[in-house]
Design a protein around this nucleic acid. Structure first.
Lengths: 242, 242
DNA sequence: TCCCGGCTTTGATGTCGATCAAGCGCCCGC
DNA sequence: GCGGGCGCTTGATCGACATCAAAGCCGGGA
């Protein structure tokens, strides 16, 4: 086991030592002392797909780091039409600071592992550590960039382009190196067809048809409905309507 | 210059005294001393509709507060399809911190008045004043909420609901009190039909048809193509597909 | 005053994706 | 092994919005 001695692991809570959130996420902004305080009030959870994490118009009184798995953020119109407005991956921070009630719904899209802590603790961290707030700001700005990218997809792309864009986005998140150099990439879809449809503003049937089209034309392979093999990222991207 | 020493505004730069950005915007986080420093390096501009403020993939080396007018943020696909991904009103902060190149395009939608300052000054403010960063974070989170709301509109609403949603959003920004209590509201559209179409992911023709439909059914009145009178906000909202 | 160009409206037709409707494959419990 | 449910695919039809086309309106300049 490679305990990294270079950053005084000795002072760091055991649970935090190998934690993604400390290496690439929010907790990287914290001093050992603060990590100890945080870990005393935080707790880890394992959550099954479909479980609701935050309900629309519920009070917001806790926050989490995503340690593994995928969370989907949804909004629903009064007549039941639904739209996925965000996907979050480890080690993203989950929650909406500075707001008493949630305006969205957060659900586990896959098997999930979270590290949660109460609102009061978040507020204390924000006050005590300027780096903490900086990271929150950076994540918010990145999510905003992503949301805006997605608005273009929703507003201006065809069904085929939408599905290709979706696959590109997932590939980039799950297998960044392969995705970067236009090579091939393989991954499990973290969403069902219904979720993908809600993400893209399409119906299940259209998503299915576009996927089989990509398959029959040799751009991707699909096994067991979930496992996708992008034979050539470059070709997929060309279909995503850049 | 005659700085009046007798009032409590005395330490504040003349230009800032009546400024929206200081009352409701970013500059509210600054001490008089910092305002003086900022005002020394900032400059006011008046800008005409259509002028480009930030180009896609340009270097980001300055930021602004919007003092009056409306800015549209757009993204364009390689084949020319365009989508408006954000609208900003006074006293919003304009710019993308922590990023060397812009991924969007910012254009004046109306006559515009800006207060601009260089990147180095922004960075100094962020370091010197924690409240400054807090306000940036709050604005980013609010914009994110708005973007996600808009994703639902783009992905799941019909043309009629989109146009109604657009009018509701504009009414709320320009005439908040009237909009809040379901009464009537009157305002000038800050966007052309082409812009509205790009905002809603529709064509000009569809926008036009939906507007005339709302007019002939007595929900709104239109004069000179630009001036809109919402006779009854409640009825308009009912058509926006909540 | 008249004319020109840009923005907008209105109409006719076409098409992409939604809707409606089966049917398939797989997993799970009995 | 068998039946049933769920997620997915495939096919036929329909409708909302795009596209193509033309004409109206309005403001600005000669």
């Amino acid at each position: 086991m490679n305990l990294r001695q270079d950053i005084h692991n000795s002072d760091i809570p055991v649970l935090c030592q190998a934690c993604e959130a400390r290496h690439r996420g929010l907790c990287g902004a914290l001093e050992p002392k603060q990590l100890v305080a945080l870990s005393r009030t935080s707790s880890r959870h394992r959550i099954h797909p479909g479980a609701e994490l935050i309900g629309d118009s519920e009070n917001i009184d806790s926050f989490s780091n995503i340690l593994s798995g995928v969370v989907k953020l949804t909004k629903t119109l009064s007549d039941g039409r639904q739209q996925i407005v965000g996907l979050q991956f480890a080690p993203d921070f989950l929650g909406r600071p500075f707001r008493s009630e949630s305006v969205i719904n957060a659900q586990a899209a896959t098997e999930l592992s979270l590290c949660s802590f109460p609102k009061s603790v978040l507020e204390r961290m924000i006050h005590e550590s300027p780096g903490f707030e900086r990271r929150l700001l950076r994540q918010a700005l990145n999510e905003l960039d992503e949301a805006r990218d997605w608005m273009v997809t929703l507003g201006r792309k065809t069904a085929g382009e939408k599905v290709a864009s979706f696959l590109v986005r997932i590939a980039r998140n799950i297998d960044p190196e392969a995705a970067a150099n236009g090579a091939s990439a393989t991954f499990d879809l973290p969403l069902t067809r219904a979720d993908i449809a809600d993400f893209l503003g399409l119906t299940i049937e259209t998503v299915s048809r576009q996927l089989t089209k990509l398959r029959t034309e040799g751009v991707i392979g699909i096994e067991n409905n979930r496992r996708v093999n992008v034979h050539n990222m470059e070709r997929l991207e060309a279909r995503s309507g850049r």
